[in-house]
Amino acid sequence: MSDEINLSCTNLSFGYHKKTVIDEVSLDFNPGEFVGLIGPNGAGKSTLLKLLLGLNKPDMGNISLGKNSLNALSRNEIAKRVSFVPQDHSIDYAFNVEEMVAMGRTPYLGNYQTESKQDLEIIEAALRRTDLFELKDRPADQLSGGERQRVFIARALAQQTNTLLLDEPTASLDLCHQLELMGLLCDLTREGHLAIAAIHDLELASRYCSRLIMLSEGKVVADGLPNEAITPDNLRRYFSIEATVEVDDLDGCIRILARQPISSLG
C-alpha cells in the first residue's frame, strides 16, 4: 500500500443503451479526502462509483489508479486497492458475520490457503472497529439491515484498501449508527485513506465530508467545500427545491430547510 495512490478519471462517459448516464466527467481524488457524491435521483452517483470500481466499462475516457490505468489491472489487483460497500446488502445465505468479514481477505489469499494469524488479526480489528465483535458468530442472514450494512463496511476494512467506495452507506442505519459510520469514515480519511460515498442526506454529507461533488444528469455541476456546493441556487437548479441554507455559528454545520418542491410542470 502506498500513500501516493491517487484515483482520477478524465472525460469519462458511460451510457446504458443510448441513454447517457455519465457525461464527460473529469475528477481527481487524493488520499485523505472524504468525498460526498450528492445529487438527485438518477444523477449517476451509483454509476460513477461502479465505473471507478471497474464494474462498468466506460464508453469513453480513462480511469487511473496511481500509475496504472484501471483497465490494465486485474480484478484481484483492483480489490487490493479499492473496496466497495454496495447499496444492496441483502445476505440470503447462512454465512456467519466473521465469515462474511473474512471474505475481505480474498484478494490476498491463494485458492487453498487458509487465513494466517495476521489475516485473523485484521479480521478481528475490522469486527471491533464496526462494533460487530460480539455478533461474530451470528448468521448474517438473521441480522437487522443496519447490522448487515456494518458487516459490509467491516469486510471493506478487512480488505485493507487505500480507497473505499460506498453507495448510500447511511441509508438503512439509525441516527446513532449513521453518526458512528460517518465518524469512522472521517477517522479513516485522517489516517490517509480516500473515501468516496454517495450520500442522499445533504446535511449529514456537509457535516462530515471534506469535499462534496454534486452530480446532475451525469455532469459534475459543483465540486468543492460543503458550503460551496450546497447553496440555495444549486438546490433550486439541480434538486428542484426552494430551500434556505444556514451555517450554524456554533459548529459550522450547514442547516437546510427545504420549503417546497419546484414543479417541473411550471
Binding site: 470500481l53 454496495p86 469486510r155
Partner: peptide, 25 residues
Amino acid sequence: LLQYSRSLDALLLGETHASSIGVDV
C-alpha cells in the same frame, strides 16, 4: 473445482460483491 471454493462463496452473494472482493466473475 476445489480451487474455486472461495470464489463460489463470493458469487453466492452476487456479482457485484464477488467482483468487489477480487473475483473476475
